[in-house]
Design a protein around this nucleic acid. Sequence first.
DNA 1: GCCGTTTTCGGCCCGACTGTTTTCAGTCG
Length: 561
Amino acid sequence: MADLLEIQGANQFRVRAYRDAARTVGSISQNVSDLISEGQDLSKYAGIGKDLAGKIEEIVKTGRLSLLEDIKQEIPGELSELTHIAGLGAKRVAALYKQLNVTSLADLEEAAKDHKIRQLEGFGQKTEESILQEIQGRQEEHAERTKLVVVERVAKPLIEYLKKTKGVKDIEAAGSYRRRKETVRDLDVLATCKKGADVMNRFVGYEDVQKVVSKGKTRSTVILRSGFQVDLRVVPQVSYGAALHYFTGSKEHNIAIRKMGVKKKLKINEYGVFKGDKRIAGRNEKDVFGKVALPFIEPELRENRGEIEAAQKDKLPKLVALDDIKGDLHVHTKYTDGHYTIQEMAEAAKKRGYKYLAIADHSKHVTVAHGLKAKDLRKQIDEIDKVNEKLKGITVLKGIEVDILEDGSLDLPDSVLKELDLTVCSVHYKFNLSKKKQTDRIIKAMNNPYFAILAHPTGRLINERRPYEIDMERIIKKAKDSGCFLELNAHPDRLDLNDIDAKRAKEIGVKLVISTDAHRIDDLDYMRFGLGQARRGWLEPDDVLNTRGLSDLKKLLKRKK
DNA sequence: GCCGTTTTCGGCCCGACTGTTTTCAGTCG
């Protein structure tokens, strides 16, 4: 709706209202159709008024939006696709449609090849060439959002490289990378430097740069060979905090903060907080928040999902940090598809300062991973006892990643499960059951008194496999009622639960377990990704099971039977 | 289309870079 209205030349604030409302709907942790069937009024959410609440209800109840259909009578719906081409916004798409009758990518390509675009007012040869290049580039693997772990591998060496520029003082990756979002579209790097031109020149000369999209005194954009985009901004040191705030985003958070500034007759931009022409803050982020009477808000919270309201009431969560984590409760060993022994994994965990480590190898149903049968598991239990006798300073816990079978039973008998400290229960097959059946399957499994932790609750693999259909609200409530826990799987391909569901679990009062699912020693360091997601989900140390010492952990793992 | 301890009308965040212009519109973040 927003794209099409914008192409039609509708009031830009009306267009923004649709975008804001769509985003709000996306960040509501509960299922919106459930909210509507419960008769809840959506206009209580920020950015959704009476009108849009009605339209959302229409979509939920009828699967259609009559206004959208009306607009599609006037202009082709496919035009919205064209605005996704870099350099094409609503105005230019409207011009292309009106003057050249371009409605699709194919039309656009043809018009560019025939040199018709350069003849339009406001367009020229360069624009036409870049449009053509963009269309043809798209047919090769279009760059989607990139997983955080991959971006780390890009960011760290690039920042080290830029740091070596003469005159560079501060340098930091901002944007969604700093907010620890699970995927990142492009990397925003911020620097302070005596002579901005020096760092810009060095930036565009980086060996991985394939294309320089733009280069200016304070901002440049490049595309790396991998297709990944990096932006570099340079500001003076007095502006570093304001710029860091601005480039960390999110956009929605920034807009909200700037609006607060406007109310106080202040102007907030990347150079500082200004009262008239006078800069009254900017060197550090804390002062920028201070000028709008807010405490420092952690980057992971800056999504305008309630953090500003919480900050105003001094009710910001004290977010869980890596130092709070006392152990990892989901790792694999050579017994199944891991690559190290129990003792090697335990020593590696101890080196990371942990007090305990739970071995959770696969159960027999996962044949590709040589899942354990009851007798294999007993053998592993014996070995864990021996390792515990040998190792001081860390306790190895006996666990299993036991499959939840299609009928909701667990893959190993209670007689062996009861010998364990904990179970990590997961769905590994039959991902395509209906939402009701999949939910019933998991809920039935939770009725087993030895069910402790639901591992990677949605089964998704970021950018690779969609989550299977489940009623998360029912699952969370069942976990609450039966004394089970939900995993926040820290593997950067999973990060499952996601931020929004993790926050919902906290609200309902279910504790989460942040585990790495490590198959190798180095995988234990994936914990940092889990922490990022947990912090995005507003989790505090108390909301996370594995911040507890060993004896508290064991008490909490005991289910009411 | 949303919103309100200045307001139910009249505002709505702010700036950089490019290309096409000859002072700025469009796009992007």
